[in-house]
Simulated assay, not measured.
Amino acid sequence: MTRRNPDLTARLRDYALDAGFAKMGVCRPDAVPDLPARLDAFVGQGRHGQMSWMADRMAWRGDPSALWPQARSVVMLAENYAPDTDPLAILERRDRAAISVYAQGRDYHDVVKKRLKQVGRWLIAQEPEAEIKVFVDTAPVMEKPLAQAAGLGWQGKHTNLLARDLGNWVFLGAIFTTLDLDVDAPEQEHCGSCRKCLDICPTDAFPAPFQLDARRCISYLTIEHRGPVDPELRALMGNRIYGCDDCLAICPWNKFALDARDARLAARDDLQAPALVELAALDDAGFRARFSGSPIKRIGRDRFVRNVCYAIGNSGNPALAAALKPLMNDADPAVADAARWGLARLDRETP
């Protein structure tokens, strides 16, 4: 354990804010004692779907103190990425693709991790004997419960983190350190009787407030789910081809959301309402070129075009059918199945 420096936490907070983060908080690695039980319940009911990584290393995921026993403090940082337009408006343009706000700019993993490392270097410069590890959504770390324990906000009824001074358009990063930093008071829940995020969900993915069944979540279905999507859910996906922002966009606390400070997180012009027929024509090379530097790239061409086929089928516009016909015999079975489903659905729309 590295000794406590009484004013280090305050100076660290000032530096983190100057570096571009919107908010910082500190908690102990064992600050969420009920986390193992919550995780066990989620996985035990199968609500993680195909996300086997949720079940892997559950001892670490459920107990951050086990991930790195030498760590004494967890520094949680929030970076805002609030959109400058209404994310729900695109849902009415059914010949266009709805892409989640967070994925319209540069990959947040790269942006946030670079800034985390900058803050970490400053911390080491102040306390050379200290050790740190930085995490951005790529390790068995439950960022949202830790962020609540560190006072950044609370997990709302939609299970995402939100804050009274930030809304819920935030990326989270964590710095584990051997330093014994001063901790912040945990934030309490302030959702009250509001249930807008639950009611707007197109697929009823929330079995109860503060609970998510990922198997019905459009973000999960378009990003994590491999193979064909349950036919019951396809029509409910609308034109959402990568993620879903409905429960985030409707939250009343967003009236306090801050504009994104990092230009790299701003939406790319070609990812704001792109034409579905244009995306359906992408081969593997075209997909990789178009989404270079984007988080979308990681799902691969096949899963992406599968989603586009569902969206075209949901467009209600038979004129888009021509984009699906070349995909009926696609090498990927899920794409071919989606193309045939989309054509059949459009055929039913023809007068």
Rank of each mutant, 00 (worst) to 15 (best):
S100F: 01
R121V: 01
A97V: 12
A185H: 04
K117A: 07
T203C: 04
L161I: 10
S100D: 09
M142N: 13
L116C: 08
F171M: 05
P140Q: 06
W122E: 09
E127I: 12
L116R: 09
D199W: 03
T178D: 15
I200M: 07
G167P: 07
L161S: 02
N168S: 13
G120Y: 02
V101W: 08
L146D: 15
G156E: 09
W122K: 00
L179Q: 10
G167N: 13
S193A: 15
A139W: 01
L179A: 15
F135W: 14
I124S: 08
A98R: 04
G153M: 00
V119C: 03
P128V: 11
D180Y: 00
H190C: 10
Y102Q: 11
G153C: 03
L172M: 07
F135S: 13
K196Y: 00
R94Y: 02
K196S: 15
P128Y: 14
R164W: 01
C201R: 07
H158G: 08
C194E: 11
L152V: 06
L162T: 09
F135A: 14
P145I: 05
Q104Y: 00
L172G: 12
R93G: 01
P128C: 12
P202Y: 11
H190T: 14
A174E: 15
Q188R: 10
S193N: 11
D199T: 10
Q104N: 09
W154K: 04
A125Q: 03
R115C: 01
R96S: 11
T177L: 05
G167Y: 10
D199F: 05
A103I: 08
V141K: 13
G192H: 04
A149T: 04
R93H: 09
L161G: 03
T177C: 11
A205G: 08
V134G: 03
K133I: 13
D137H: 10
A139Q: 11
Q148E: 15
K113W: 13
T159R: 01
W122L: 00
E187W: 01
A125D: 12
G151F: 07
A185F: 03
T138A: 15
G151A: 00
M142A: 15
Y102R: 13
E127S: 13
D182C: 03
A147F: 01
K117R: 01
I175F: 08
E127F: 02
G105M: 06
K113V: 11
H109M: 10
S193P: 02
S193K: 12
A130F: 01
M142V: 02
K144P: 02
L198G: 08
S100M: 09
V170S: 14
V101Y: 09
A97C: 12
L198W: 09
V134M: 05
W122R: 04
F176I: 05
P186C: 08
Q148A: 09
M142W: 12
R164T: 06
G156I: 05
K144S: 12
P128K: 02
L152M: 06
Q126T: 03
T178E: 09
E187H: 07
A185W: 01
T178N: 06
E143H: 15
G153Q: 00
K144V: 15
G167W: 07
I175W: 14
G192R: 10
I124E: 07
L166A: 07
Q188Y: 05
K133W: 09
H109P: 07
